[in-house]
Nucleic acid binder design. Structure first.
Lengths: 224, 224
DNA sequence: ACGATAACTGAACGATCGTTTAGTTTGTTG
DNA sequence: CAACAAACTAAACGATCGTTCAGTTATCGT
Protein backbone atom coordinates (compact mmCIF):
# COMPACT_ATOMS: atom_id res chain seq x y z
CA UNK A 1 0.00 0.00 0.00
CA UNK A 2 3.04 2.21 0.33
CA UNK A 3 4.79 4.08 -2.43
CA UNK A 4 7.79 2.59 -4.14
CA UNK A 5 9.93 5.52 -3.03
CA UNK A 6 9.54 4.41 0.56
CA UNK A 7 13.26 4.61 1.19
CA UNK A 8 14.48 4.70 4.76
CA UNK A 9 17.55 6.84 4.22
CA UNK A 10 18.11 9.57 6.73
CA UNK A 11 17.64 12.17 4.03
CA UNK A 12 14.21 10.73 3.26
CA UNK A 13 13.28 10.67 6.94
CA UNK A 14 14.17 14.33 7.24
CA UNK A 15 12.16 15.15 4.14
CA UNK A 16 9.15 13.25 5.45
CA UNK A 17 9.42 14.99 8.80
CA UNK A 18 9.49 18.35 7.03
CA UNK A 19 6.44 17.43 4.94
CA UNK A 20 4.60 16.39 8.08
CA UNK A 21 5.38 19.54 10.04
CA UNK A 22 4.99 21.99 7.15
CA UNK A 23 1.67 20.36 6.34
CA UNK A 24 0.54 20.79 9.93
CA UNK A 25 1.82 24.27 10.79
CA UNK A 26 2.94 25.85 7.56
CA UNK A 27 6.47 26.56 6.38
CA UNK A 28 6.97 29.81 8.24
CA UNK A 29 6.08 28.14 11.54
CA UNK A 30 8.35 25.14 10.98
CA UNK A 31 11.93 25.43 12.24
CA UNK A 32 14.95 23.42 11.21
CA UNK A 33 15.30 22.21 14.79
CA UNK A 34 11.70 20.99 14.88
CA UNK A 35 12.23 19.05 11.66
CA UNK A 36 15.44 17.59 13.08
CA UNK A 37 13.70 16.51 16.29
CA UNK A 38 10.85 14.91 14.36
CA UNK A 39 13.35 13.02 12.24
CA UNK A 40 15.47 12.13 15.25
CA UNK A 41 18.62 13.86 14.05
CA UNK A 42 20.54 17.02 14.81
CA UNK A 43 19.66 20.39 13.34
CA UNK A 44 22.94 20.64 11.53
CA UNK A 45 22.25 17.47 9.60
CA UNK A 46 19.10 18.93 8.11
CA UNK A 47 21.10 21.75 6.60
CA UNK A 48 23.91 19.37 5.64
CA UNK A 49 21.57 17.23 3.54
CA UNK A 50 19.55 19.96 1.88
CA UNK A 51 21.74 23.04 2.02
CA UNK A 52 19.24 25.18 3.88
CA UNK A 53 15.61 25.53 4.82
CA UNK A 54 14.61 27.10 1.52
CA UNK A 55 16.12 24.20 -0.39
CA UNK A 56 14.44 21.74 1.95
CA UNK A 57 11.13 23.40 1.13
CA UNK A 58 11.66 23.06 -2.61
CA UNK A 59 12.78 19.46 -2.14
CA UNK A 60 9.49 18.78 -0.36
CA UNK A 61 7.58 20.59 -3.09
CA UNK A 62 9.29 18.54 -5.77
CA UNK A 63 8.66 15.30 -3.91
CA UNK A 64 4.96 15.98 -3.38
CA UNK A 65 4.46 17.16 -6.95
CA UNK A 66 6.24 14.10 -8.28
CA UNK A 67 4.14 11.83 -6.09
CA UNK A 68 0.88 13.53 -7.01
CA UNK A 69 1.64 13.04 -10.70
CA UNK A 70 2.61 9.39 -10.34
CA UNK A 71 0.43 6.32 -10.67
CA UNK A 72 1.59 2.83 -9.83
CA UNK A 73 -0.62 0.95 -12.24
CA UNK A 74 -1.40 1.52 -15.87
CA UNK A 75 -2.81 4.97 -16.30
CA UNK A 76 -1.24 7.90 -18.06
CA UNK A 77 1.64 9.23 -16.04
CA UNK A 78 0.32 12.72 -15.40
CA UNK A 79 -3.08 11.83 -13.99
CA UNK A 80 -3.35 14.01 -10.94
CA UNK A 81 -7.00 13.24 -10.22
CA UNK A 82 -6.32 9.52 -10.11
CA UNK A 83 -3.49 10.09 -7.69
CA UNK A 84 -5.71 12.10 -5.38
CA UNK A 85 -8.31 9.36 -5.46
CA UNK A 86 -5.65 6.86 -4.52
CA UNK A 87 -4.59 9.10 -1.66
CA UNK A 88 -8.17 9.45 -0.50
CA UNK A 89 -8.45 5.66 -0.36
CA UNK A 90 -5.64 5.24 2.18
CA UNK A 91 -6.15 8.27 4.29
CA UNK A 92 -4.07 7.52 7.33
CA UNK A 93 -0.97 6.99 5.27
CA UNK A 94 -1.42 9.89 2.88
CA UNK A 95 -2.88 12.53 5.19
CA UNK A 96 0.46 14.33 5.67
CA UNK A 97 0.75 14.60 1.91
CA UNK A 98 -2.76 15.97 1.59
CA UNK A 99 -2.00 18.53 4.27
CA UNK A 100 1.18 19.57 2.51
CA UNK A 101 -0.69 19.78 -0.77
CA UNK A 102 -3.14 22.22 0.79
CA UNK A 103 -0.28 24.42 1.95
CA UNK A 104 1.16 24.32 -1.55
CA UNK A 105 -1.90 26.11 -2.90
CA UNK A 106 -2.25 28.59 -0.07
CA UNK A 107 1.25 30.01 0.35
CA UNK A 108 1.40 30.87 -3.35
CA UNK A 109 4.66 29.25 -4.32
CA UNK A 110 5.73 28.82 -7.92
CA UNK A 111 5.48 25.06 -7.52
CA UNK A 112 1.90 25.36 -6.34
CA UNK A 113 1.03 27.62 -9.26
CA UNK A 114 2.46 25.19 -11.79
CA UNK A 115 0.61 22.26 -10.26
CA UNK A 116 -2.63 24.21 -10.14
CA UNK A 117 -2.37 25.15 -13.79
CA UNK A 118 -1.62 21.55 -14.71
CA UNK A 119 -4.72 20.37 -12.90
CA UNK A 120 -6.81 23.00 -14.68
CA UNK A 121 -5.48 21.90 -18.05
CA UNK A 122 -6.17 18.26 -17.22
CA UNK A 123 -9.68 19.06 -16.03
CA UNK A 124 -10.36 21.06 -19.17
CA UNK A 125 -9.38 18.00 -21.19
CA UNK A 126 -11.71 15.78 -19.18
CA UNK A 127 -14.55 18.23 -19.71
CA UNK A 128 -13.84 18.29 -23.43
CA UNK A 129 -14.01 14.53 -23.55
CA UNK A 130 -17.21 14.53 -21.52
CA UNK A 131 -18.83 17.01 -23.85
CA UNK A 132 -17.73 15.34 -27.07
CA UNK A 133 -18.94 11.97 -25.78
CA UNK A 134 -22.23 13.67 -24.90
CA UNK A 135 -22.03 12.86 -21.21
CA UNK A 136 -21.59 16.46 -20.15
CA UNK A 137 -23.29 19.65 -21.18
CA UNK A 138 -21.18 22.22 -23.03
CA UNK A 139 -20.32 25.53 -21.40
CA UNK A 140 -20.21 29.02 -22.86
CA UNK A 141 -16.82 29.43 -21.13
CA UNK A 142 -14.98 26.13 -21.04
CA UNK A 143 -11.90 27.56 -19.38
CA UNK A 144 -13.87 29.18 -16.59
CA UNK A 145 -15.81 25.95 -16.04
CA UNK A 146 -12.62 23.90 -15.72
CA UNK A 147 -11.22 26.50 -13.37
CA UNK A 148 -14.40 26.45 -11.32
CA UNK A 149 -14.40 22.68 -10.92
CA UNK A 150 -10.76 22.66 -9.91
CA UNK A 151 -11.45 25.41 -7.40
CA UNK A 152 -14.31 23.38 -5.96
CA UNK A 153 -12.20 20.24 -5.68
CA UNK A 154 -9.22 21.93 -4.12
CA UNK A 155 -11.54 23.95 -1.92
CA UNK A 156 -12.78 20.76 -0.30
CA UNK A 157 -9.17 19.72 0.12
CA UNK A 158 -8.03 22.98 1.70
CA UNK A 159 -11.09 23.40 3.90
CA UNK A 160 -11.05 19.78 5.00
CA UNK A 161 -10.70 20.59 8.69
CA UNK A 162 -13.82 22.78 8.58
CA UNK A 163 -15.72 20.14 6.63
CA UNK A 164 -14.76 17.42 9.09
CA UNK A 165 -15.81 19.56 12.03
CA UNK A 166 -19.10 20.53 10.42
CA UNK A 167 -19.93 16.89 9.66
CA UNK A 168 -18.52 15.71 13.00
CA UNK A 169 -16.16 13.22 11.36
CA UNK A 170 -12.42 12.83 11.10
CA UNK A 171 -10.50 14.66 8.38
CA UNK A 172 -10.86 12.86 5.04
CA UNK A 173 -13.16 10.30 6.59
CA UNK A 174 -15.06 8.04 4.24
CA UNK A 175 -18.33 9.39 5.54
CA UNK A 176 -17.45 13.00 4.80
CA UNK A 177 -16.07 12.14 1.37
CA UNK A 178 -19.22 10.22 0.56
CA UNK A 179 -21.64 12.87 1.77
CA UNK A 180 -19.79 15.72 0.09
CA UNK A 181 -19.37 13.71 -3.09
CA UNK A 182 -23.06 12.88 -3.30
CA UNK A 183 -24.04 16.48 -2.60
CA UNK A 184 -21.80 17.54 -5.45
CA UNK A 185 -23.14 14.87 -7.79
CA UNK A 186 -26.69 15.93 -7.04
CA UNK A 187 -25.93 19.44 -8.19
CA UNK A 188 -23.77 18.32 -11.08
CA UNK A 189 -26.63 16.11 -12.25
CA UNK A 190 -29.84 18.02 -11.60
CA UNK A 191 -28.58 21.50 -10.87
CA UNK A 192 -29.55 23.61 -7.89
CA UNK A 193 -32.20 25.88 -9.37
CA UNK A 194 -35.49 24.59 -10.72
CA UNK A 195 -35.47 27.01 -13.63
CA UNK A 196 -33.05 29.33 -15.39
CA UNK A 197 -34.36 32.52 -13.82
CA UNK A 198 -31.24 33.43 -11.90
CA UNK A 199 -28.94 32.53 -14.78
CA UNK A 200 -30.90 34.68 -17.21
CA UNK A 201 -31.00 37.55 -14.76
CA UNK A 202 -27.25 37.38 -14.40
CA UNK A 203 -26.73 37.35 -18.17
CA UNK A 204 -29.08 40.29 -18.57
CA UNK A 205 -27.26 42.21 -15.89
CA UNK A 206 -23.94 41.48 -17.57
CA UNK A 207 -25.18 42.64 -20.95
CA UNK A 208 -26.13 46.03 -19.52
CA UNK A 209 -22.37 46.48 -19.14
CA UNK A 210 -22.24 46.52 -15.36
CA UNK A 211 -23.63 49.98 -14.67
CA UNK A 212 -24.04 49.03 -11.06
CA UNK A 213 -21.55 46.46 -9.91
CA UNK A 214 -23.45 45.89 -6.70
CA UNK A 215 -26.51 44.67 -8.58
CA UNK A 216 -24.64 41.89 -10.28
CA UNK A 217 -23.07 40.88 -7.02
CA UNK A 218 -26.47 40.59 -5.38
CA UNK A 219 -27.89 38.80 -8.40
CA UNK A 220 -25.39 36.01 -8.05
CA UNK A 221 -26.99 35.14 -4.74
CA UNK A 222 -25.64 31.89 -3.29
CA UNK A 223 -22.80 31.94 -5.78
CA UNK A 224 -21.16 34.45 -3.47
CA UNK B 1 -17.50 54.09 0.36
CA UNK B 2 -15.48 53.48 3.49
CA UNK B 3 -16.61 51.81 6.64
CA UNK B 4 -17.97 53.82 9.51
CA UNK B 5 -15.20 52.50 11.75
CA UNK B 6 -12.66 54.35 9.66
CA UNK B 7 -11.02 55.84 12.73
CA UNK B 8 -7.57 57.27 12.37
CA UNK B 9 -6.33 56.50 15.83
CA UNK B 10 -2.87 55.06 16.06
CA UNK B 11 -4.27 51.86 17.46
CA UNK B 12 -6.47 51.48 14.38
CA UNK B 13 -3.53 52.20 12.06
CA UNK B 14 -1.52 49.46 13.74
CA UNK B 15 -4.44 47.05 13.48
CA UNK B 16 -4.91 47.85 9.79
CA UNK B 17 -1.21 47.38 9.15
CA UNK B 18 -1.36 44.00 10.86
CA UNK B 19 -4.39 42.97 8.80
CA UNK B 20 -2.58 44.00 5.63
CA UNK B 21 0.62 42.12 6.40
CA UNK B 22 -0.98 39.04 7.92
CA UNK B 23 -3.27 38.87 4.90
CA UNK B 24 -0.28 39.04 2.59
CA UNK B 25 2.26 36.80 4.29
CA UNK B 26 0.39 34.98 7.04
CA UNK B 27 0.63 35.47 10.78
CA UNK B 28 3.73 33.37 11.38
CA UNK B 29 5.66 35.39 8.78
CA UNK B 30 4.56 38.78 10.15
CA UNK B 31 6.76 40.32 12.83
CA UNK B 32 5.87 43.02 15.31
CA UNK B 33 8.57 45.22 13.83
CA UNK B 34 7.16 44.81 10.33
CA UNK B 35 3.72 45.82 11.55
CA UNK B 36 5.24 48.79 13.36
CA UNK B 37 7.10 49.90 10.25
CA UNK B 38 3.97 49.59 8.10
CA UNK B 39 2.03 51.68 10.62
CA UNK B 40 4.87 54.18 10.98
CA UNK B 41 5.39 53.63 14.70
CA UNK B 42 7.89 51.87 16.93
CA UNK B 43 7.78 48.18 17.70
CA UNK B 44 7.21 48.78 21.37
CA UNK B 45 4.02 50.71 20.68
CA UNK B 46 2.48 47.73 18.94
CA UNK B 47 2.86 45.68 22.10
CA UNK B 48 1.84 48.63 24.26
CA UNK B 49 -1.51 48.95 22.49
CA UNK B 50 -2.38 45.28 22.17
CA UNK B 51 -0.38 43.55 24.88
CA UNK B 52 1.42 41.17 22.52
CA UNK B 53 1.36 39.66 19.09
CA UNK B 54 -1.13 36.97 19.97
CA UNK B 55 -3.57 39.55 21.28
CA UNK B 56 -3.01 41.65 18.17
CA UNK B 57 -3.96 38.63 16.08
CA UNK B 58 -7.20 38.08 17.99
CA UNK B 59 -7.95 41.81 17.77
CA UNK B 60 -7.59 41.56 13.99
CA UNK B 61 -9.75 38.43 13.94
CA UNK B 62 -12.46 40.16 15.95
CA UNK B 63 -12.32 43.24 13.75
CA UNK B 64 -12.62 41.29 10.51
CA UNK B 65 -15.38 39.07 11.85
CA UNK B 66 -17.30 42.07 13.10
CA UNK B 67 -16.90 43.81 9.75
CA UNK B 68 -17.91 40.76 7.74
CA UNK B 69 -21.10 40.44 9.78
CA UNK B 70 -21.98 44.12 9.48
CA UNK B 71 -24.16 45.80 6.91
CA UNK B 72 -24.56 49.54 6.63
CA UNK B 73 -28.00 49.61 5.11
CA UNK B 74 -31.15 47.78 6.03
CA UNK B 75 -30.52 44.08 5.94
CA UNK B 76 -30.39 41.71 8.85
CA UNK B 77 -27.28 42.31 10.85
CA UNK B 78 -25.70 38.90 10.43
CA UNK B 79 -25.75 38.66 6.65
CA UNK B 80 -22.27 37.51 5.78
CA UNK B 81 -22.96 36.88 2.11
CA UNK B 82 -24.20 40.41 1.62
CA UNK B 83 -21.07 41.77 3.26
CA UNK B 84 -18.87 39.76 0.96
CA UNK B 85 -20.77 41.04 -2.05
CA UNK B 86 -20.25 44.57 -0.81
CA UNK B 87 -16.55 43.88 -0.42
CA UNK B 88 -16.40 42.43 -3.91
CA UNK B 89 -17.87 45.65 -5.26
CA UNK B 90 -15.07 47.88 -3.96
CA UNK B 91 -12.15 45.61 -4.41
CA UNK B 92 -9.24 47.97 -4.06
CA UNK B 93 -10.44 49.11 -0.65
CA UNK B 94 -11.43 45.73 0.72
CA UNK B 95 -8.74 43.50 -0.77
CA UNK B 96 -6.67 43.42 2.44
CA UNK B 97 -9.75 42.27 4.30
CA UNK B 98 -10.43 39.54 1.77
CA UNK B 99 -6.84 38.38 2.06
CA UNK B 100 -7.08 38.28 5.82
CA UNK B 101 -10.35 36.41 5.59
CA UNK B 102 -8.67 33.74 3.50
CA UNK B 103 -6.00 33.30 6.13
CA UNK B 104 -8.69 32.97 8.79
CA UNK B 105 -9.96 29.82 7.16
CA UNK B 106 -6.58 28.31 6.39
CA UNK B 107 -4.68 28.64 9.66
CA UNK B 108 -7.50 26.91 11.56
CA UNK B 109 -8.10 29.40 14.33
CA UNK B 110 -11.11 29.20 16.59
CA UNK B 111 -12.35 32.46 15.17
CA UNK B 112 -12.21 31.07 11.65
CA UNK B 113 -14.06 27.94 12.70
CA UNK B 114 -16.86 29.94 14.31
CA UNK B 115 -17.23 32.15 11.26
CA UNK B 116 -17.23 29.17 8.94
CA UNK B 117 -19.95 27.43 10.92
CA UNK B 118 -22.01 30.62 10.95
CA UNK B 119 -21.77 30.88 7.18
CA UNK B 120 -22.83 27.25 6.82
CA UNK B 121 -25.86 27.81 9.04
CA UNK B 122 -26.78 30.90 7.09
CA UNK B 123 -26.40 29.12 3.76
CA UNK B 124 -28.51 26.23 5.01
CA UNK B 125 -31.25 28.73 5.83
CA UNK B 126 -31.03 30.27 2.37
CA UNK B 127 -31.28 26.84 0.79
CA UNK B 128 -34.31 26.03 2.95
CA UNK B 129 -35.98 29.22 1.80
CA UNK B 130 -35.11 28.46 -1.80
CA UNK B 131 -36.57 24.99 -1.59
CA UNK B 132 -39.75 26.00 0.22
CA UNK B 133 -40.33 28.79 -2.29
CA UNK B 134 -39.80 26.23 -5.04
CA UNK B 135 -36.87 28.04 -6.59
CA UNK B 136 -34.34 25.38 -5.64
CA UNK B 137 -34.39 21.61 -5.81
CA UNK B 138 -34.36 19.73 -2.52
CA UNK B 139 -31.36 17.65 -1.51
CA UNK B 140 -31.20 14.27 0.14
CA UNK B 141 -28.60 15.77 2.51
CA UNK B 142 -29.34 19.42 3.18
CA UNK B 143 -26.45 19.92 5.57
CA UNK B 144 -23.92 18.47 3.17
CA UNK B 145 -25.31 20.65 0.37
CA UNK B 146 -24.96 23.81 2.44
CA UNK B 147 -21.47 22.79 3.43
CA UNK B 148 -20.60 22.09 -0.19
CA UNK B 149 -21.78 25.47 -1.41
CA UNK B 150 -19.89 27.26 1.34
CA UNK B 151 -16.79 25.29 0.49
CA UNK B 152 -17.16 26.30 -3.15
CA UNK B 153 -17.62 29.96 -2.29
CA UNK B 154 -14.73 30.13 0.14
CA UNK B 155 -12.66 28.05 -2.23
CA UNK B 156 -12.88 30.77 -4.87
CA UNK B 157 -11.94 33.25 -2.17
CA UNK B 158 -8.92 31.33 -0.89
CA UNK B 159 -7.69 30.31 -4.35
CA UNK B 160 -8.19 33.80 -5.75
CA UNK B 161 -4.55 34.27 -6.73
CA UNK B 162 -4.61 31.06 -8.80
CA UNK B 163 -7.92 32.03 -10.38
CA UNK B 164 -6.63 35.46 -11.31
CA UNK B 165 -3.47 34.02 -12.83
CA UNK B 166 -5.39 31.39 -14.76
CA UNK B 167 -7.76 33.99 -16.19
CA UNK B 168 -4.97 36.52 -16.65
CA UNK B 169 -6.74 39.20 -14.63
CA UNK B 170 -6.11 40.99 -11.37
CA UNK B 171 -7.17 39.41 -8.09
CA UNK B 172 -10.92 39.91 -7.54
CA UNK B 173 -11.26 41.63 -10.89
CA UNK B 174 -14.76 42.17 -12.20
CA UNK B 175 -13.97 40.04 -15.21
CA UNK B 176 -12.91 37.06 -13.16
CA UNK B 177 -15.86 37.40 -10.79
CA UNK B 178 -18.21 37.56 -13.75
CA UNK B 179 -16.75 34.60 -15.59
CA UNK B 180 -16.55 32.39 -12.52
CA UNK B 181 -20.00 33.44 -11.41
CA UNK B 182 -21.55 32.59 -14.75
CA UNK B 183 -19.75 29.26 -14.92
CA UNK B 184 -21.17 28.45 -11.51
CA UNK B 185 -24.66 29.58 -12.46
CA UNK B 186 -24.56 27.42 -15.57
CA UNK B 187 -23.92 24.36 -13.46
CA UNK B 188 -26.30 25.40 -10.70
CA UNK B 189 -29.00 25.84 -13.33
CA UNK B 190 -28.53 23.06 -15.86
CA UNK B 191 -26.13 20.74 -14.09
CA UNK B 192 -22.95 19.34 -15.56
CA UNK B 193 -24.03 15.88 -16.65
CA UNK B 194 -26.65 15.27 -19.32
CA UNK B 195 -28.19 12.35 -17.42
CA UNK B 196 -28.10 10.83 -13.95
CA UNK B 197 -25.80 7.97 -14.86
CA UNK B 198 -22.89 8.99 -12.65
CA UNK B 199 -25.13 9.90 -9.73
CA UNK B 200 -26.90 6.55 -9.88
CA UNK B 201 -23.64 4.70 -10.15
CA UNK B 202 -22.34 6.48 -7.07
CA UNK B 203 -25.47 5.67 -5.10
CA UNK B 204 -25.27 2.02 -6.16
CA UNK B 205 -21.65 1.86 -5.13
CA UNK B 206 -22.47 3.40 -1.76
CA UNK B 207 -25.30 0.92 -1.16
CA UNK B 208 -22.91 -1.99 -1.57
CA UNK B 209 -21.43 -0.71 1.69
CA UNK B 210 -18.00 0.31 0.38
CA UNK B 211 -16.39 -3.09 -0.10
CA UNK B 212 -13.72 -1.45 -2.17
CA UNK B 213 -13.10 2.14 -1.18
CA UNK B 214 -11.05 2.75 -4.30
CA UNK B 215 -14.04 2.02 -6.56
CA UNK B 216 -16.14 4.72 -4.97
CA UNK B 217 -13.29 7.17 -5.22
CA UNK B 218 -12.93 6.49 -8.90
CA UNK B 219 -16.68 6.60 -9.41
CA UNK B 220 -16.84 10.18 -8.23
CA UNK B 221 -14.79 11.16 -11.26
CA UNK B 222 -14.44 14.92 -11.66
CA UNK B 223 -15.80 15.42 -8.15
CA UNK B 224 -12.31 14.55 -6.97
C1' DA C 1 0.17 76.81 34.38
C1' DC C 2 0.75 72.36 36.19
C1' DG C 3 0.57 67.78 37.70
C1' DA C 4 -1.33 63.40 35.99
C1' DT C 5 -2.03 60.25 32.46
C1' DA C 6 -1.54 58.31 28.24
C1' DA C 7 1.19 57.92 23.86
C1' DC C 8 5.37 56.95 22.19
C1' DT C 9 10.52 56.02 21.31
C1' DG C 10 15.01 53.65 21.42
C1' DA C 11 17.77 50.63 23.56
C1' DA C 12 18.17 46.51 25.65
C1' DC C 13 16.98 41.48 27.22
C1' DG C 14 16.61 36.59 26.61
C1' DA C 15 14.94 33.20 23.35
C1' DT C 16 15.03 31.23 19.08
C1' DC C 17 16.02 31.40 14.36
C1' DG C 18 19.09 29.53 10.14
C1' DT C 19 23.52 28.48 9.45
C1' DT C 20 28.59 27.50 10.23
C1' DT C 21 32.28 25.12 12.07
C1' DA C 22 35.15 21.79 14.36
C1' DG C 23 35.33 17.47 15.63
C1' DT C 24 33.58 12.55 16.01
C1' DT C 25 31.53 8.45 14.39
C1' DT C 26 30.58 5.30 10.70
C1' DG C 27 31.24 2.96 6.47
C1' DT C 28 33.84 1.81 2.38
C1' DT C 29 37.85 0.72 -0.26
C1' DG C 30 42.53 -0.39 -0.93
C1' DC D 1 44.44 -2.47 9.12
C1' DA D 2 45.11 2.15 7.17
C1' DA D 3 43.07 5.79 4.85
C1' DC D 4 39.74 8.44 2.98
C1' DA D 5 34.84 10.09 2.49
C1' DA D 6 30.50 10.55 4.02
C1' DA D 7 27.24 10.85 7.90
C1' DC D 8 26.51 12.99 11.90
C1' DT D 9 26.73 15.75 16.47
C1' DA D 10 27.41 19.57 19.65
C1' DA D 11 28.58 24.05 20.18
C1' DA D 12 28.71 28.44 18.71
C1' DC D 13 27.73 32.67 15.56
C1' DG D 14 25.13 36.56 14.11
C1' DA D 15 20.47 37.91 13.05
C1' DT D 16 15.92 38.48 14.31
C1' DC D 17 12.19 37.39 17.15
C1' DG D 18 8.61 39.08 21.01
C1' DT D 19 8.79 41.65 24.83
C1' DT D 20 10.44 44.86 28.62
C1' DC D 21 11.89 49.08 30.37
C1' DA D 22 13.55 53.72 31.22
C1' DG D 23 12.88 57.89 29.59
C1' DT D 24 10.64 61.48 26.53
C1' DT D 25 6.79 63.79 24.35
C1' DA D 26 2.12 64.97 23.94
C1' DT D 27 -2.74 65.47 25.95
C1' DC D 28 -5.82 67.14 29.08
C1' DG D 29 -8.68 68.13 33.21
C1' DT D 30 -8.41 71.50 36.86
Amino acid sequence: MRSAKDDSTTRARIRDAAILLIGQKGFAATSARAVAAEAGVSAGLVIHHFGGMRQLKTACDDFIITEVARRKTGMSEGDVTASLNEWYSDLDAYQPWLNYLSRLFTDDSDAGAELFDRIVTMTAGMLEDGVSSQQMRPSTDAHARALLLVTHSLGTLILQSHIARSLDTARFSLESLSRMGNAALEIYTDGLYVDSGVLNASRDAASVAHQHQAEKGQGSGPTL
